[in-house]
């Protein structure tokens, strides 16, 4: 779905079909499996998605469910800027779920990984287990928090806030089980990559135009990180 209107149309059509008597075809339809495709060629790093997510989900200052780190990479024509929008990858095999000692985190029928806040004891084990550093302990609620694909919006036919607000249509959200969905069509037309494939988690967030140097652990030297951490001499770290 590349436009909000199409998404809403489809969602409303789906709701209407659910109210009406189900046909044999709809009864046999595959369940939805949400996924996101980020077209890095279109992302300008404006952080509108970061702000929209923060406002929509009341994320405390300094914490993020999604954000867009910006890096400088060396290329054949000199340095270039690279952006890497990051969020929970809603993995097929999420390492955060089996480690939870109180069954507070689970996958919805549509594949979104969510946290039941009232059940979470905030032990932080899931935060440690996530290779994408997509989880954190929310300073306001005191429990584990993460991107939910805006489950409160998608369950009523709306797009996630970050997709809704993306000025360049760089984020495409849709049903991976539907071969006619825009996300699937784009994936068929372009080479896509997921982050940190070495962990074999089956991420459901895909990227077009992802530089291999950003796909796995990003080795970072100098720059803003050193300034933030008050380092006098350039040091190398990993993010």
């Amino acid at each position: 779905m590349n436009s909000r209107r199409e998404f809403l149309k489809l969602a409303m059509a789906g709701s209407t079909a659910a109210v009406a008597a189900p046909t044999a075809a709809s009864a046999q339809a595959k369940p939805k499996r949400w996924g996101m495709l980020v077209d890095l060629r279109k992302c300008i790093g404006c952080q509108a998605c970061t702000v929209a997510c923060t406002i929509e989900n009341d994320v405390p200052e300094g914490q993020h469910r999604t954000a867009v780190p910006v890096y400088e990479l060396d290329g054949p024509d000199g340095p270039s800027q690279a952006v890497l929008p990051r969020l929970c990858n809603h993995c097929d095999e999420p390492p955060c779920i089996p480690v939870c000692p109180v069954n507070a985190t689970f996958k919805t029928d549509e594949g979104a990984v969510v946290v039941e806040a009232e059940q979470c004891v905030a032990c932080g084990y899931c935060v440690q287990a996530c290779p994408y550093e997509a989880r954190f302990i929310n300073h306001k609620t005191g429990v584990a928090d993460k991107c939910t694909f805006c489950v409160h919006r998608t369950s009523v036919g709306l797009l996630p806030a970050c997709v809704e607000t993306c000025v360049g249509n760089a984020r495409v959200f849709g049903d991976l089980n539907d071969p006619e969905s825009d996300i699937r069509k784009l994936m068929a037309q372009h080479e896509t990559k997921g982050l940190r494939p070495e962990f074999k988690t089956g991420p459901n967030v895909y990227y077009i135009g992802l530089d291999d140097r950003l796909a796995s652990t990003v080795a970072v030297g100098g720059g803003a990180r050193d300034l933030r951490q008050g380092l006098e001499t350039p040091a190398h770290g990993e993010v």
Binding site: G45, H64, A67, P69, V70, Y71, E72, L73, P79, Q81, A82, G124, V127, Q128, E133, F136, I137, R213, L214, V218, A219, V220, G221, G222, G223, A224, R225, D226, R228, Q229, H236, V239
Partner: peptide
């Protein structure tokens, strides 16, 4: 390595 122009740090959980 890449130069970090703008990113975010995670606190130790």
């Amino acid at each position: 390595p890449a130069v970090d122009l703008m990113s975010f740090d995670h606190e130790a959980v």
